[in-house]
C-alpha cells in the first residue's frame, strides 16, 4: 500500500498535526514515511503545504510528482485548490468549507466552493461547526482528517490510537476532544458518500 498526500492550509491551522497523526499510524503499521514540511516565513499566515508519503515499499523522493497525489487534505477551501496540479485522475480532494479571509482579495466563497465541486472526487465539510460540536473549533483540522480517514487505507482504530499518542502530552480533555473530532469527520463521510 502506498499513499501520496498533499496537506494544505494557512500557517497556524494545524496541518502538521494531521501529518503527525497519519505519520505515527503509518509507522505503527511498519510503513516507510517521508514528509516534507514548511517552516519559517510562510507560517506567519501565509499558504502552507506538506508532502506526506507513506508506503510499505521504500520511498524515493521527498516530493510528490505532479499528477500523482492520491489525496489533497485541506483545512481551508481556497488552499485546497492551490495544489490541484499534484492530484491524480483518481485522487480525492477533501476540504473544510470555512474560508480564512486574511487577504483583501479573497474570492467569493461560493465561487471557490463551486470550483471544488467541479473536481471529479471531492468532499466538502463544515469542519468548523463539527469541531465546535465536538468541543472546540481548534479541532477542525482533525475533523478533516476524520473525513479523509476512509481514503488512507488504514484501520480507523489505528488513527484513533495515533490521535491518543500525538495529543497525549496535552491532557485527557484534548485527547478526547480530538477523538470526537476524528469520529465526527468519519461519520460525515459515512452518511454522505455512497
Amino acid at each position: 500500500m502506498k499513499k501520496d498526500i498533499i496537506l494544505a492550509g494557512v500557517g497556524g491551522q494545524g496541518i502538521l498535526s494531521i501529518a503527525a497523526v497519519i505519520g505515527y499510524a503509518a509507522l505503527e503499521e511498519g510503513m516507510y514515511l517521508k514528509q516534507s514540511e514548511v517552516h519559517g516565513m510562510s507560517q506567519r499566515g501565509g499558504d502552507v503545504m506538506s508532502n506526506l508519503r507513506i508506503s510499505h515499499e521504500e520511498i524515493a523522493s521527498d516530493l510528490i510528482p505532479f499528477g500523482k497525489a492520491d489525496l489533497i487534505i485541506a483545512v481551508e477551501p481556497l488552499e485546497s485548490l492551490r495544489y490541484l496540479p499534484y492530484l491524480s485522475n483518481e485522487g480525492w480532494l477533501i476540504s473544510a468549507s470555512k474560508p480564512l479571509e486574511n487577504i483583501p482579495n479573497y474570492p467569493e466563497i461560493e465561487v471557490v466552493l463551486d470550483a471544488i465541486r467541479g473536481i471529479p472526487h471531492h468532499i466538502i465539510l463544515d469542519a468548523d461547526v463539527m469541531a465546535k460540536d465536538a468541543g472546540s473549533a481548534k479541532a477542525s483540522n482533525i475533523v478533516v482528517l476524520g473525513a479523509a480517514s476512509l481514503f488512507l487505507g488504514m484501520e480507523f482504530s489505528k488513527l484513533e490510537a495515533a490521535v491518543n499518542y500525538i495529543f497525549n502530552g496535552k491532557g485527557e480533555d484534548i485527547v478526547n476532544l480530538n477523538l470526537r473530532a476524528l469520529r465526527a469527520g468519519k461519520e460525515f463521510v459515512d452518511h454522505n458518500q455512497e
Binding site: 501565509g46 481556497l78 487577504i103
Partner: peptide, 8 residues
C-alpha cells in the same frame, strides 16, 4: 480564481 496568500 486563485490569488496569492503572502505571510503577514
Amino acid at each position: 480564481l486563485m490569488v496569492s496568500r503572502p505571510p503577514s
